[in-house]
Simulated assay, not measured.
Amino acid sequence: MIYSTGQSFKEDIGNSLNLVYFWGPQCSVCKILKPVIEELDKEDQINIVSFKW
């Protein structure tokens, strides 16, 4: 999983297939999705870019 910032976002996503995970610390849906995203990250079939807003 790549943890991106606003400055590095374009470089982090590159030209490959990505799942961009926008999340916030107060977001209850984000907390529910986090284990699913982490499991997908283990499979190495897709790049996951995490972006905290």
Results as ranks from 00 to 15, higher is better:
residue 17 L to A: 12
residue 47 N to Q: 12
residue 51 F to W: 03
residue 37 I to E: 04
residue 34 K to I: 09
residue 39 E to A: 15
residue 22 F to Q: 06
residue 5 T to S: 15
residue 7 Q to W: 01
residue 52 K to G: 04
residue 46 I to W: 08
residue 19 L to D: 02
residue 51 F to T: 04
residue 13 I to P: 03
residue 21 Y to E: 13
residue 28 S to M: 06
residue 41 D to T: 07
residue 27 C to N: 08
residue 4 S to W: 07
residue 1 M to T: 11
residue 17 L to S: 05
residue 40 L to K: 03
residue 42 K to V: 04
residue 30 C to G: 11
residue 46 I to K: 04
residue 23 W to F: 15
residue 26 Q to M: 10
residue 34 K to A: 15
residue 5 T to L: 13
residue 46 I to H: 02
residue 51 F to Q: 04
residue 12 D to A: 10
residue 21 Y to D: 12
residue 3 Y to V: 12
residue 11 E to K: 13
residue 41 D to S: 14
residue 23 W to T: 15
residue 29 V to W: 04
residue 51 F to I: 08
residue 46 I to A: 08
residue 44 D to F: 08
residue 7 Q to E: 14
residue 19 L to N: 01
residue 38 E to R: 13
residue 23 W to S: 15
residue 22 F to M: 10
residue 20 V to H: 10
residue 51 F to P: 00
residue 13 I to E: 00
residue 22 F to H: 05
residue 23 W to N: 14
residue 26 Q to G: 11
residue 7 Q to R: 09
residue 4 S to H: 07
residue 47 N to M: 05
residue 45 Q to A: 04
residue 18 N to K: 04
residue 34 K to C: 08
residue 20 V to R: 05
residue 17 L to Q: 04
residue 30 C to K: 03
residue 36 V to I: 14
residue 28 S to D: 14
residue 40 L to I: 04
residue 32 I to P: 09
residue 23 W to G: 07
residue 50 S to Y: 03
residue 39 E to Q: 15
residue 30 C to H: 00
residue 16 S to M: 01
residue 40 L to W: 11
residue 7 Q to A: 14
residue 12 D to S: 10
residue 44 D to A: 14
residue 8 S to P: 07
residue 53 W to Q: 08
residue 12 D to I: 00
residue 15 N to S: 11
residue 18 N to G: 05
residue 8 S to I: 06
residue 6 G to W: 01
residue 50 S to G: 09
residue 50 S to V: 06
residue 4 S to C: 02
residue 20 V to T: 04
residue 33 L to Y: 08
residue 20 V to M: 06
residue 44 D to C: 05
residue 2 I to S: 02
residue 43 E to I: 02
residue 21 Y to I: 03
residue 5 T to K: 14
residue 10 K to Q: 13
residue 29 V to E: 06
residue 11 E to I: 01
residue 23 W to Q: 13
residue 3 Y to Q: 14
residue 49 V to I: 09
residue 32 I to N: 05
residue 13 I to A: 03
residue 43 E to P: 00
residue 2 I to Y: 14
residue 1 M to I: 06
residue 33 L to M: 15
residue 33 L to E: 13
residue 7 Q to P: 00
residue 44 D to P: 04
residue 5 T to H: 13
residue 14 G to E: 11
residue 42 K to S: 11
residue 2 I to N: 09
residue 46 I to M: 09
residue 9 F to T: 01
residue 45 Q to P: 00
residue 47 N to K: 12
residue 18 N to S: 10
residue 28 S to V: 12
residue 39 E to K: 15
residue 12 D to N: 10
residue 27 C to P: 01
residue 15 N to H: 03
residue 9 F to D: 07
residue 49 V to Q: 04
residue 30 C to W: 00
residue 18 N to R: 06
residue 3 Y to G: 02
residue 10 K to I: 02
residue 23 W to I: 12
residue 39 E to P: 08
residue 33 L to A: 14
residue 43 E to W: 00
residue 45 Q to R: 07
residue 42 K to M: 02
residue 19 L to K: 03
residue 33 L to N: 14
